Amino acid sequence: MKRLFTFLLPLSLLSCREAPKDFSSVSIGMTKDEVTSAVGEPTKKNELAVVDIWVYPDADRSVIFRKDTVYNIVTSSEARIDSIETSIERTGDKVGSSLNRLGDSLERTGQQIKDKFRRDTTRN
């Protein structure tokens, strides 16, 4: 029984660890209340002259406020890579959608040219 307890205790402590926050909804211009609502309270708050810095180490993010508004979001290099990958995926989705629309448009134009060519050749 003691052996089982010594195995389960560390396991249960690991499962209680909070998952990193999803910062995709946090953006420049948001208020402190909006940020708190989106990702919760920071681990640490630094108040410097005209800025406040909220630190979220689990998400590798720091949110910088001027007055009550998000001025910047600073990330670690690893978190920046995640952000870049997400941005590339979104851009790829947009490009794919645009290419699909372009393909549809070209297909319609090609069909119109074929139809006109058939009408012109049947008249002659």
Rank of each mutant, 00 (worst) to 15 (best):
67 K>F: 13
56 Y>P: 05
69 T>Q: 15
104 D>H: 13
73 I>W: 01
35 V>M: 08
109 T>F: 08
26 V>M: 13
63 V>S: 12
65 F>S: 11
73 I>A: 10
73 I>Y: 06
3 R>A: 14
27 S>N: 14
75 T>I: 11
89 E>T: 06
89 E>M: 03
46 N>M: 02
112 Q>R: 04
8 L>R: 06
93 D>Y: 02
12 S>A: 14
42 P>E: 01
68 D>Q: 13
46 N>D: 01
4 L>R: 12
113 I>K: 01
69 T>F: 00
39 V>D: 07
28 I>T: 10
119 R>P: 04
13 L>P: 00
110 G>A: 02
120 D>T: 10
94 K>L: 03
37 S>K: 15
85 E>I: 05
6 T>L: 14
28 I>E: 15
12 S>C: 08
54 W>D: 08
95 V>N: 03
14 L>S: 11
65 F>G: 12
29 G>D: 11
80 R>H: 06
33 D>S: 14
10 P>F: 10
50 V>P: 00
39 V>K: 05
88 I>G: 03
34 E>S: 15
113 I>D: 03
109 T>Y: 04
12 S>I: 09
80 R>E: 08
84 I>Y: 02
65 F>C: 11
110 G>M: 08
116 K>D: 07
108 R>A: 12
62 S>V: 04
115 D>Y: 04
18 E>M: 00
46 N>A: 04
38 A>H: 02
109 T>L: 10
4 L>S: 11
18 E>K: 06
55 V>P: 03
51 V>F: 07
57 P>L: 03
95 V>D: 03
67 K>I: 07
